[in-house]
Amino acid sequence: MPKIKLSENTVQTIKSVCAEFDNKESELINVLHKVQGKLGYLPAEVQEVIAKGLNTSVARVYGVVTFYSYFTMIPRGEFPISICMGTACYVRGAEQVLGEFKRQLKVEVGESTPDGKFSLNCLRCVGACGLAPVVTIGEKVFGRVAPTQVKEIIAEYRQGCASENAKSA
């Protein structure tokens, strides 16, 4: 097993989350939710600590992390961008919006920009289909996004202030 290079602090955080759920193996998904909430992502080392904490195998933890699309092993950007690729958004042109984000940020889906500011992902339906096509950046929901708006949205985040005219769902 490779040596764990996480800070003592991080290890403690993970251990306390495990303890919160009585170190029970059946609580694995809840533990993962909580740890990802705190650390932002679940790299291999974190999974090892969790496996130890819940007294189970790393393979079991890895199997669950990779099964669910909500869990990620790579760090997300400061502003995680998600394009909804649900059916309602798809028929209203989500593909073009995604294409424009890819071109503007020069990243592929699942990657982050080198400066760590933006990461790009797809998700399936946030339940705001009436506003299709939908893009979420962090907690913020943008509705009826047109490809031509993409540049503007990114620029606003680059400058550090979130768009005020965003419609929340």
């Binding site: 993962l32 099964f67 699309s69 909500y70 399936r124």
Partner: peptide, 8 residues
């Protein structure tokens, strides 16, 4: 409550 994690 039990939470899902994005799997249809």
């Amino acid at each position: 409550l039990r939470y899902g994690a994005g799997a249809f």
